[in-house]
């Protein structure tokens, strides 16, 4: 009986210690845009193609050009929403998926960029870049040499 009490006690302590880490972010109602450099010559990508590129299954655009995906901050609402809307799976399942690939040495997840300005700059400077951002004015993005190839919305 003491063993059960001990195991429950440890479990409860772990829970209490983690409460402050719990994120209560509400789901975003905005759209999320998937963007590439205008010189990639892409005008649109479908959901399956985007999923392959952001889950490390493909490293080339449909036109054959090499690509490199960039991610947003781990734990951010934008990242959670992006992967959940894209894959229809929990962000925890996506993180578990990446944990398996990364720590078996097989594939590394997309490099994380913390803020919007740096993401836009990276896509502007890099013809092979693909990233995602909160909804912006497509015309303003086009003026910066950035093309919106897909818009994700909450289902």
């Amino acid at each position: 009986m003491m063993k059960y009490i001990r195991i429950l006690l440890i479990f409860s302590l772990l829970l209490l210690s983690m409460v402050s880490w719990a994120d209560n972010k509400p789901l975003d109602s905005e759209s999320i845009q998937i963007i590439v450099n205008a010189q990639s010559e892409l005008t649109q990508l479908n959901r399956k193609q985007i999923m392959s590129l952001f889950l490390g299954r493909s490293t080339r655009f449909p036109n054959g050009k090499s690509t490199k995906a960039f991610d947003n901050k781990i734990g951010s609402a934008l990242r959670d929403n992006f992967f959940e809307w894209l894959t229809r799976k929990s962000i925890s399942d996506i993180d578990a998926y990446w944990a398996r690939l990364r720590y078996s040495g097989r594939v590394y997840p997309p490099k994380v960029i913390d803020n919007l300005d740096d993401i836009l700059e990276t896509v502007r400077q890099n013809q092979s870049a693909i990233a995602y951002i909160r909804q912006q004015d497509p015309e303003q993005l086009a003026e910066q040499g950035i093309t919106v190839v897909h818009t994700l919305r909450k289902r």
């Binding site: 090499s66 993180d95 578990a96 944990a99 720590y103 078996s104 040495g105």
Partner: peptide, 28 residues
């Protein structure tokens, strides 16, 4: 290239489905 990959050194064994990540508790 995208198709080929060559590794030399120490690697985790992946004889079974989870054996290359069985230490990574978060992944299962």
């Amino acid at each position: 290239n995208d198709a080929w990959s060559f590794r030399l050194g120490r690697m985790v064994l992946d004889t079974f489905q989870l054996s290359d990540s069985r230490d990574v508790g978060y992944s299962y």
